[in-house]
Design a protein around this nucleic acid. Sequence first.
DNA 1: GCAAACTTCTGGTCTATACCAATTAGCCGG
DNA 2: CCGGCTAATTGGTATAGACCAGAAGTTTGC
Lengths: 236, 236
Amino acid sequence: MSDAYYLQLTEQLRHLIDQNAVHWDGKLPAERALAERFATTRVTLRQALAQLEGEGLIHRSNRRGWFISPARLVYDPTRDAGFNDYVRAQGRQPRTAVLKLETRAHVPAARALGLPDDQPFHHIRRRRYVDDRAVLVESLWVVPERAPELLDIYSGQSLWGLLRERWGHYLANRSIRMVSEALLPIDAEELLVAPGTAGLNINRAILDDQQRPIEYDEEHWLHDSLCISVELSGQQ
Amino acid sequence: MSDAYYLQLTEQLRHLIDQNAVHWDGKLPAERALAERFATTRVTLRQALAQLEGEGLIHRSNRRGWFISPARLVYDPTRDAGFNDYVRAQGRQPRTAVLKLETRAHVPAARALGLPDDQPFHHIRRRRYVDDRAVLVESLWVVPERAPELLDIYSGQSLWGLLRERWGHYLANRSIRMVSEALLPIDAEELLVAPGTAGLNINRAILDDQQRPIEYDEEHWLHDSLCISVELSGQQ
DNA sequence: GCAAACTTCTGGTCTATACCAATTAGCCGG
DNA sequence: CCGGCTAATTGGTATAGACCAGAAGTTTGC
């Protein structure tokens, strides 16, 4: 059982990573080189790498190779700090790239917010980075009545900040769902990873303090870049 | 890109599952049979199955075969409903098996609760089922002063209920952490799955309303059996 | 009639090899 | 020195076959 060779390989690779992380600038040697070094085939070697990938210790970027994964970002979905804020609070560098801006209907968003299926939304799709590594892609669907000229002025800043400062919306009621997933080819491509890479899907439906629907969003995170943390007190 | 054969296979298997789920009692045909049916090798076929496994659509049990995964259990870590309660509330059957009862020190628990490293705990290890499928193993470390004779009377019931009713402890402050993981061989074995299977690790440190440490626990869930759901209102 | 022993089937692991496409590195010419 | 082309490298995908150990089903023996 535990004597499977690929599991031994996993341990050896783990040590290799612990000891020499500095020298490599985070990149592991090529698969063929590692396979030869450990006297095995690429298939078995890849099985060991996949194990470490599942643990979140390493990841692969597109076809460029295997890299040591940076520390996970700690994220509390119950708090209202924006992405930029909590990334910086952890001493790291956030970045956002806007991929799409359009206005159209979207059934899942409508359903989540209790609106008719043909309700149009301002749709923003963006990719977000931590220290120049793409860690998530997300789509946001904002009810146009709440932020009419959103698409004209949006350029990657904090959406919640914008909603609060420009339109005076306070996000009072949130319904959050999280499930593990395998990234679909389309999401995987935008994150520069292989299709089927493990991910974490986070959906949010947000209403204001008068129960009016504001926005719905879907985030697709790389599974190894996130640590959900929730602090609760006082209730029972 | 998307024309990889294993991805086409994934789609065909998906349809197969959608259409015939009833006939199979949830079990898919043998890998060799499927490989022949789709005119490919087991290696490629398994790659397609792994994709569906990552999505949470199917899973494998031990060496018995591939099975269609039941619906995910919806779980709100911010609420205090016990496992038995919320499983039943979703029309399903909970079950608990106690794997170990002992008293000993445990450094991670001590650290999480702010106690000295050699602090002894009542340690309970248990496996929990939904509709007779093992979905998680967990270890709990309870501060002995809060529940002295716990190990003598514990037999699989709700721990929180016991703490509340017998010792009058109210769980007021919780610190929860969730990260994706690959199940270690020891946890995988207890869940009857292959080592490296994707899992979700949930840790909790719990104090009472006077900030006294009560317990710390580590849960290891099968990734496909859980949907985290959080409902928040009123705050900003 | 039932438990033990045996056989078959199944997934888990592994070897060896091959081709493709994307990336990267190197070369070359302007 | 820079930009564009080419060749080498790399990960992604796939074939074909093999052995093992655990699970399941069948037969045997009492």
